[in-house]
Design a protein around this nucleic acid. Structure first.
Lengths: 130, 130
DNA sequence: ATGGTGCTTCCCATCATGGGAAGGTCAAGG
DNA sequence: CCTTGACCTTCCCATGATGGGAAGCACCAT
């Protein structure tokens, strides 16, 4: 199938499919005489794999590792688990950071009148009001 | 003071100070005869304001708005509060997304033996194993 | 005057993604 | 047979915030 159909079938845009090939995440696709890229079911599976991994927040570098593990029948599941849990830690840390920012800001906003008056603890805090 | 001292005093790198000026977040700094940028206390206050806003996850575009509000003595605090709460929503949404990813992945990892055997529900899920 | 430190501008890289231009390919229909 | 339109190709540029590094100028202490 052509790249547009592979994109449709996998949920990865044609633009990104070409990009993944360019950065070496995917092997160079087969070509028709016309020069068009030609994909099979196996390629679509790999693309779906990548999309799901992206949906779980893995970077392309991490996905490259996961693809290698996926393709290695003798891999130890311990290795996969290690990569996954390291990523979980990173996700949770980032989530905590964002939640902390949100909490701080929500606290400041709670003390802001939010009316026509100009005084506002949010700006005062940003300006270094302590 | 020169840019290095302003960077030291504000916690914003010299590189970023120049960048903020280049993108219009800050007015062009005063210059000495030598061509060196010259900063005063007011500039350092603005830089600290930016750094604190960045620490709370505001984008440079949002900060531009906050700086304008900060400099407007007649602003209504309602406006500031509105911007802040919209940002809180965005932060919380992003935190939820990350937490959801982490939870999904942690769940998958919990069902992965994590030993020398090759079978692994994490890869199976990514491969679309349902 | 010399060395070292700090400043200047300019270009490049990151990471994942998309927009868009210029031009080639192919199938359907007049 | 030729046109039209949808699809493909490559290549360049942009995003957002930050940093690295090079080439060259300014300044200060020795």
């Amino acid at each position: 199938m052509r790249i547009g159909e592979a994109a449709e079938a996998s949920g990865v845009s044609a633009k990104m499919i070409r990009h993944y090939e360019a950065v070496g995440l995917l092997p160079a696709a087969a070509r028709r005489d016309s020069g068009y890229r030609d994909y099979g079911e196996g390629d679509v599976h790999a693309l779906r794999f990548i999309r799901r991994a992206r949906d779980l927040g893995f970077s392309l570098a991490e996905i490259a590792g996961l693809l290698a593990l996926w393709g290695d029948r003798n891999r130890a599941s311990a290795e996969v688990k290690r990569v996954a849990l390291a990523h979980v830690e990173a996700l949770e840390a980032k989530a905590r950071d964002l939640s902390a920012m949100a909490a701080t800001l929500r606290h400041l906003a709670a003390h802001c009148h939010g009316d026509a008056r100009p005084d506002c603890p949010i700006l005062e805090e940003l300006a270094g009001g302590r």
